[in-house]
Amino acid sequence: MKKIIVALVVLFILYLIGINTVPQYIESERNPVKTPAPYTVSAEAQALYNRLDFISDLHCDALLWGRSLNERGDRGHVDFPRMREANVSLEMFTIVSKSPAGQNMKSNSEDAFDNITPLTIAKGESPWNWFSLINRTLSQGEALAQYVEKEQGNAIFIKTKADLERLLAERKTNPKVIGAMLGIEGGHALEGNLENLEKVYEAGIRMIGPTHFFDNEFGGSAHGENGAGLSEFGKEAVRKMNEMGIFIDLAHSSPAIVEDVLNLTSKPAMVSHTGVRAVLDSQRNLSDEQIQRIAANGGIIGIAFFDMAVGEPELPNIIASIKHVRDLVGIEYIALGSDYDGSVAVPFDITGLPLIVEGLMQAGFTEDEIRAVMGENVKNFFLKNLN
């Protein structure tokens, strides 16, 4: 018995060590920054950046890693202090609940080993989260609420139009106030149960992507195996999301789902993080026809920052992607959709956003166009469409 007790104590100590080391190591490996901060731009670009009233990003997976957003991190891409350093007004934090082993852009099985399960255990999360996608999802949502609460009024959890209006009003006198929204990357988090839409809505989630890297109850992924459109469950979920005021995020959806959603939805759709096929011909990117249909729907398109969405070198290709959408449908449909902290290597963390302003200036974008891309379009979209 004594040996068993000693063995259990040793295992417990090793588990505690793992909680404090393994997730940090994994995050550092999965979310590198190709060029570390600090970043410098021309005086003209920095001056224009400093004049921006509202800067926003539509996609960040920082909640996945268990790192406190209240503290300035030495790894990863986004936290509240770095948002303030970059004068970012609003970030969409997205929840990843499942990720297939061997994840790739072309073909993934929904039955593949799930990478998030061991990470969930290693982070020391409740056993209730270990094998439940909805519990993992709600737990990450609660974590964001707690991070916001710890800011003691200097952060606002944006769930309604009134919340956004409060953010805009408070930032006029206190630019330290930041906003955080919450989305889900992959409808598998609902576990095939429409009643879970009510739970995630109550948790503050206002955006859901039907699929992520594999097919699920909604239908086919752009990186899955069946290429299917919306299932009957998916169609009913879209209708209910419209009624509730949850935005549909078409990033990672199969072309058939993109078409089905745009045919079915009564509300504007989003693409939180993507590239365009005219710049990088990838199955995860949008075709010109899709871009035109999303614009006709009144939607908004977030341009991602990483090589598998825009190609290399990233910065000029980010600018080229923005330019392509502008020239095709107009400036008002474009946003930033970094995919920060999403198991991707990025050219710069959130404090490097002035580099995008400099790139847009060099490409001949006007100040009004730059304002639109950097956040005004997101502000206007949510003011118009949030309940």
Rank of each mutant, 00 (worst) to 15 (best):
M1G: 13
A7S: 14
F12W: 15
L16N: 14
L16M: 12
L16I: 15
I19N: 12
T21I: 06
T21S: 08
T21V: 07
P23Y: 05
E27S: 06
S28C: 02
N31G: 09
P36V: 02
P36T: 03
A37V: 03
P38E: 08
Q46D: 07
S56T: 08
H59S: 14
H59W: 10
N70V: 11
N70M: 13
D74N: 10
D74T: 10
R75M: 13
E85F: 10
V88Q: 03
S89Q: 07
L90Y: 06
M92I: 04
M92R: 01
F93L: 14
I95A: 07
S97L: 06
A101N: 15
Q103K: 11
K106R: 10
S109D: 13
D114C: 04
N115V: 15
T117N: 11
T117L: 13
P118Y: 02
L119H: 00
I121S: 11
F131R: 09
F131G: 08
I134A: 04
E151I: 02
G153N: 13
N154S: 12
I158Y: 13
K161N: 03
A162H: 07
K172V: 14
K176N: 13
L182V: 10
L182G: 05
I184W: 04
G186E: 02
A189W: 13
E191L: 11
L194V: 15
I205R: 01
F213D: 14
S221M: 12
E225K: 11
N226D: 13
N226V: 12
L230D: 00
G234E: 07
K235W: 07
V238W: 11
E243N: 05
M244T: 04
I246H: 03
L262R: 02
M270V: 12
S272G: 07
T274W: 01
G275H: 12
D288I: 05
E289S: 13
E289N: 09
A295K: 01
A295H: 01
A296N: 05
N297S: 12
I300G: 06
A304W: 14
D307H: 14
V310N: 00
V310I: 03
E312I: 08
E314G: 00
L315S: 07
P316G: 06
N317G: 09
N317K: 14
K323Q: 15
L336R: 01
G337N: 03
G337C: 03
S338K: 03
S338Q: 03
Y340C: 11
D341R: 03
G342M: 10
V344A: 08
V344C: 07
V346P: 06
F348I: 11
V357H: 06
G359M: 05
L360H: 04
L360K: 04
Q362E: 06
Q362D: 05
F365W: 03
T366G: 09
E369F: 10
I370L: 09
R371D: 00
N377H: 05
N377C: 04
F382D: 08
